[in-house]
Structures are given as C-alpha cells and as structure tokens.
Design a protein around this nucleic acid. Structure first.
Lengths: 110, 110
DNA sequence: TGCATATATGTCATATTTGACATAGCTTTG
DNA sequence: CAAAGCTATGTCAAATATGACATATATGCA
C-alpha cells in the first residue's frame, strides 16, 4: 500500500497496518476475552459450589445482583478487576484464580 | 457490640463487622494487590527483555509513556485490565501471564 | 557543557465502569 | 394458581480509569 492511500484511509478513520499486525491484534483480543470468560466461569462454579445466590455474592462483593449476573455472563461492561475481586470475595483463592486462567478454553471461530 | 452502638458507628460512616471479616477483607485486598504487582513486574521484565522503551510500549498498547510508567509501578490508578492488555500487546503470552500470577510474591507487613 | 533519550509524577477532561434500579422470565413450592 | 426466590437484561447517574500533556530527574554521549 502506498503512503497516499494509507493517508486517505487514516483520514477516514481507519487504522492501517500489516496483516501480521492484524492477526496479532486478534490474538491479543482473543486471549484477553478468554481470560475474562475463564474468570466468569470460575466465579459461577465457585458460587454454585458454595450454594450462594447472586444476591448473596453481591452483598459480599459490595455490588448488586444484576452486576453479578453480568459478571458471570462475561458482559463487556464488566472489568477483569471486578471479576477478580468477586472471586476473592466469595472465598476463591489466588491459586484457584491461577488454575482458572491456566485452563481457559480457546475461543473457536464463529 | 450492641446494635445501638453498631447503628451509631454506621451512622458515622463506619463499616461494622467481625474480626474474621476484617481479616478476610485484608487477605482479599492483599491478594488483589499482589496479583496487580505481579503483572506490573511481568510487564517491566518483558519490556526490558525485548529492549523496548516505555514510549514504544505506549504505542503498541495505544496509551502514553506516563501511563506505562504507572503500569510498571503498580499505580492505584491502573487497572488489571490495562496491565493485561499491555503484557499481551508487547508479545507476552497468556502462559507468561499465568506464570507471573502463579509466582507472585507475598506482601509483607510494613 | 549541551543535547538527546528514558523514566517518573502530577493534573485534567473525557471515556469507561460501576452500583442501583426496574422489570421480565423462570422454577419451585404451597 | 399464586407467591416467593433466583437470574437475565436494559438504563442511568455517579464513580473510576484513561490518554494526553507538562514537567522533573537522570543518564549517556559528543
């Protein structure tokens, strides 16, 4: 791609990069989402094992039932920080967190 | 503690709980901070190994040099989300992240 | 020394995340 | 069936995190 076209695309709001960069970005994003989902599953599993309702978890975390539901579903509006704090708040150990992240499932193409 | 005193304390802005709850909270907070610092060290080590400046990392992450400095110092204003994205952005593997979290150092009392 | 490069720290407007709320669907149990 | 409890989803004002910037300090090098 020549620099003129690159400039035009960027002026139009596009990021221009190599195919390798594009693939790397996807990889990074996928890895990030996988970790988030791993923590979401970890939280859900731990909650069920402890026989807690989402409302009870909300109390322990200092949050609300609706947000706990979002945490467990990996909602985009939930940060990894919040997920981590929730897992720890219901008694999850750091080791459990590490195990969850280590065993995270790969996302498959749609 | 009787409920009257509890009510007075809470009215004054204090959280009232058991000693066990207090200790648990400290444990959770410590675990959380330890993980954050582990990622901060991971980012720094990886950056040095790759011979990148903080400014270069900022470009790769889409952030700024000052924020990268804050990331590496475990500044309270930096989220774990951002630290994770930074590590991945400079080529850190999910496995490296897991290793960093697994080998996190314990915080010792001041 | 002067100059370039790298890192640290404080501030701030803006962007994102948050708890709270309303509400709907779903089960269970009486 | 009705009531009660649990979970999902959308919304929003307030709280927090963010990139950008200015600037200080430090180090190396000509």
């Amino acid at each position: 791609m020549n620099s003129t076209k690159k400039a035009r695309l960027e002026a139009a709001g596009w990021k221009v990069g190599t195919a390798a960069e594009f693939l790397d970005l996807n990889k990074q994003q996928a890895a990030f989402v996988e970790m988030k989902l791993a923590l979401a599953r970890c939280l859900h599993a731990l909650r069920i094992r402890r026989k807690l309702s989402q409302s009870r978890v909300a109390e322990l975390v200092g949050s609300s039932q609706s947000r706990v539901a979002k945490m467990e579903s990996g909602d985009p509006s939930v940060s990894i920080d919040l997920l981590l704090r929730a897992v720890l708040a219901i008694g999850g150990s750091p080791a459990a967190v590490v195990r969850a992240l280590a065993s995270r499932k790969k996302l498959t193409p749609a």
